[in-house]
Design a protein around this nucleic acid. Structure first.
Lengths: 226, 226, 226, 226
DNA sequence: AATGAATGAGTTTTCATTCAT
DNA sequence: TATGAATGAAAACTCATTCAT
């Protein structure tokens, strides 16, 4: 009996039949390809090739290229939101909590350039896939709540300003890291330097944390912001 | 009276054979199309159509799609850098100068979504076109100098911290606006709101200016960033 | 009775999904088209049309136009070299063997104008495809050996000169026929005759055989070839 | 008065107006391009570029691409036929005359690869351009006459066979050289050698002269060709 | 579930030729 | 005579998707 496939099943000799693994491989390949080339620039052929499977399986498992892109978004959004939840900011004093959140946001983008790339593309498509994904819609309210609670706690403790709305704070936290990573290549080119080194990344990290915490500090004399 | 062809006015009535106008029309159409669809998603056909000219003129005037993309980048980069130069920051006190710069950066992105879109794409291509454009390379040193001088002046006057490097400050200024506009659609979607209204944009503008100026303020008690 | 699909005969009645047949049809069509128009003048569209299949199958099965041209060369080279091997020259006296070889070379070119046409084109491209085809490279040493043995045998038997190198002899044998076929149209035009008739072809055939055998004869008085 | 153009003419300042020189430059460029790429593979743009003039001048001076190809053929045919006429074979003994003719034919092809290349292409087009060129048609009868006279003289002197028709002899003379040059690249490739060296060319030259003179020798014992 | 063949509709780019100056 | 702009038609090649096995 040649090549028994894992157990005594009826399946034909040629194994390699693990649909769940195929799905995972395709999804990972899709995230990589979409991050590299964008939705328009990605090739279904290439995704299948990266996953080591037949192209038709993309259609079998995901429907079509757009559905695959949505699945990729769900995956990368799911990861960051899940990790944010396990930061347990409530266990820390407000300033430390904020520092942890900013640090995490920065680090996650540093480690996940595909998130940046996919979001860029998704915005070009006016968030079409996000809007049609109930799964993604559902995962964001905890984030706002988390920030809001931290800001409120800091305000109560007298270490944060009281006039900051959580969504704008989140956008600032994310933006300070995001732009650095999203535009790293053009910034390196126009400033004639290399911002993609460990040294520059960690320098930026310190800058961002410092910047956010400074901005949130209560001020003696208010600036007149117009 | 139908268009008499040889009147003595400045520009001939029949636009035929005005290569410079053809070039301009193509460039404008290209910027719009690349902003909408990205480099990979844009169609040379569509660009020519938007410009109202024959498709082959793209090749005649620009070489190919990539060269056209480079020309588009040169155009949009050229505009923002030129306008920055005319801000005359040196004529203002440091805080007001910084406020003007941050406000301008925000407004320019608000008014020029194509800049955001083109830069996103250019980064996906690892700044390939920027790197091969001496024109773009040349236009950036004044920007850094401008920020550096403003920071130095503010530090001298005791209104700014002394430990900020100009490139990181620029990246923060740009990033706080950029992320808001670049990711406006996904942010609106996930936070279940509409950030693309005049109200939200101006709210964000105030937040950004406030955020930057607060962050740059000298602090009595230094936070330990790290 | 209309084409019943599942009769138990050797080949299925509906030719659908017979990749091997598709490949063969494309190759035959390609040889014909390349012979007619050359590599540059041939149209992939036309090749597909001649083969009765979809154009994209050229790319599916062969890669691109150049690869298809290489495959065509492999095919026509393979045929002539295979037929040469089955001439069994070793079974004949040297003069008869040489006569058979010359006759075959002439006849093969007469029957296979596509070989002439393809080789002309391949030389314009500096044998690029031949050089990149290990298959073609491999099929030629038997030919040289065959001629060499025949010449040696003839020399031993006193019927051939002893100073002829096999490659030059092969080039002469081939050239005497090749030029006639390759340039038949221009020769007919400039000499104001029609060399494409059965009569002129067979006259040329006799001339070529006579010419080669005469030239190979041992001579009493050596000519001083410079 | 700046830059007078050769004499006191009325032509505008910008000289470079030498239509005859332009024509010559275009013709030379066309011969080179057609030899390199063939009729189908050649580009009018490239021919103009090689000639250093505007593309439109091709149409101005020659009509169109096909007419230009005909002009190129007339040029290269004219050259070889003219040089043949100045060989003055009648002044030499038959064998020496034939040797001179064979040598010249070989040398001319060696020095004029463009002739080989153009003829290949012209034959692919079934001598279309030659047939429509009265000029080319006219230049060939002297050639046949010349060979015929030489053969007749040799036969009279007892140094040549008497049964050779001049057209077949010409085709053999030309073919022995032509095939070597026309197929030099493929022959080098398949025989795994380099036939494009001075050494191999001169070896071939000797072989060809020897081959022709041997074949033309009267034979004691006739071979039975067929 | 999995594969390779097949396809229709593009997509960039090319090119001979003509137009306007 | 000479030039660069402009064009229509095509050409090689691509690609998401479906079909047959």
């Amino acid at each position: 009996m040649e090549e028994t496939a894992r157990m005594n099943d009826k399946r034909p000799i040629r194994q390699k039949r693990d649909p769940e693994a195929t799905r995972r491989a395709l999804l990972a390949a899709a995230i990589a390809e979409f991050a590299d080339k964008g939705l328009a620039g990605s090739r279904v052929d290439e995704i299948a090739h990266r996953a080591g499977v037949n192209k038709q399986l993309v259609y079998h498992h995901f429907g079509n290229k757009d559905d695959l892109f949505r699945a990729a978004l769900e995956q990368v959004y799911g990861e960051i939101r899940a990790r944010e939840q396990s930061l347990n900011l409530a266990d820390l004093p407000a300033v430390a909590a904020m520092e942890r959140l900013v640090g995490f946001s920065f680090d996650h983008l540093a480690e996940h350039p595909e998130l940046v790339a996919l979001l860029n593309d998704e915005n070009r498509h006016e968030a079409r896939h996000v809007k049609s994904s109930p799964q993604i819609q559902a995962m964001h309210s905890p984030l706002v709540r988390m920030i809001d609670e931290t800001l409120a706690r800091g305000a109560r403790d007298g270490v944060f300003r009281t006039d900051m709305d959580p969504i704008n704070v989140y956008i600032s936290i994310a933006g300070l890291a995001y732009f650095f990573f999203a535009n790293n290549h053009t910034l390196s080119a126009i400033f004639d330097t290399n911002l993609d080194t460990a040294r520059e990344v960690s320098r930026r990290r310190r800058h961002v944390i410092d910047f956010v915490l400074s901005a949130l500090q209560p001020r003696e004399v208010g600036l007149s912001p117009d």
